[in-house]
Amino acid sequence: MNVTLTVNGTEHTLDVPDNTLLVDVLRGQLGLTGTHVGCDTSQCGACVVHLNGDAVKSCTVLAGQADGAAVTTIEGIGSPDDLHPMQAAFRDNHALQCGFCTPGMIMSAIDLVQKSEGLDEQAVREGLEGNLCRCTGYHNIVKAVLAAQQNMAQGGN
């Protein structure tokens, strides 16, 4: 079947089998390998992207469900020369080690901060319950999200 997706601002019409997952379209057909797959029960959050502005697990969305939607992936929010405040905060606070969970974590954190005000440590921890990290113990991720909240409030994205 054909699906049309606007991914990181570019419209694509793609012919995919009916049982295709959004994550497979992103990784396989569009080569956006920054979105990762870390589990098969929709829990690890490595695959999180924004679908029409909401953080979702792209491993649990069929391509057909996303037909007509706008998708933003980690590749769409900033570049090494022009980082999103959340990306910068992850770097500045050493909020990543192996980097595998990082794209999903950043996409979740952006959605969390954009939809909440005045998050404290506990609220950030609860807000990130859908993303697993095995490296950092979350300590520096929480620091980074709190720091990014400040920067985003001050005019960042």
Binding site: L32, T33, G34, T35, T73, I74, E75, G78, S79, P80, L83, Q87, F90, R91, L96, G99, F100, T102, P103, I106
Partner: peptide, 10 residues
């Protein structure tokens, strides 16, 4: 390392 990991280029 971070530049590539935080931008999805790992």
């Amino acid at each position: 390392e971070d530049a590539r990991f935080i931008t999805g280029m790992g």
